[in-house]
Design a protein around this nucleic acid. Sequence first.
DNA 1: GGCTCGATCTTG
DNA 2: AAGATCGAGCCC
Length: 216
Amino acid sequence: MAMTLAMQAIKSRHKLLGSTWFARPALLLAPELIGKILVRKLPAGFQPRGSFQAGGSKPEASPAGIFRYRITEVEAYCGVQDLGCHASHGHTKRTEIMFGPAGYIYVYLIYGMYHCLNLVTAKSGEAEAVLIRSVEPLFGTNQKPVGPGRLCRELNIDNQLNCLKLGRTSGLWVEDDGYKLKPGEVCQSARRGIDYAKDYASKPWRFYLSTSEFVS
DNA sequence: GGCTCGATCTTG
DNA sequence: AAGATCGAGCCC
């Protein structure tokens, strides 16, 4: 399919968000990630399982293999003092990436069968990250990649991406297309699945788009 | 080396 | 409501 002028215009407005953008506290960054675009470049032959060409039933054949998703739900994990954060146990092999500079990918295996995608934020030594919980596909699809485990399965995200830097090289990055949220559209709640985190379990550090169906 | 448990999802 | 499934973290 030929690239139209309108498509190019929209594409050129997309701004790749780099390390500097991510080098802020997770609590500030998490709500700002809502409405941004998660971009996944899949290897040749791979594609999201439910994708299809708009108006048809055939799988989408994107030559570039690039798929975009609006981020609809995230959680902030805020360093060693946050008992819900993996880094609360200090420097370990698994959490070392969180102590590093912002803009890196932290993927871990959960329950032996699912992966969770996190983006490292804040400055080196702070061990903060944002968990991407749900996204809304910006292309035709039958799948609803709702929930962190299903999201990673849909986007083919696993340990191979762990510790890589966000960007075209790793095949995973974040863009800002200028999409503006309405005031009050981002809601907050307690984070999921961290009952063990004592007084941090009830912190309202989950952020989600109240107007989206793509929320877990 | 062995034990425990989890930032989940599916099935019944 | 419970099972799948495996590696990190921790304690021998």
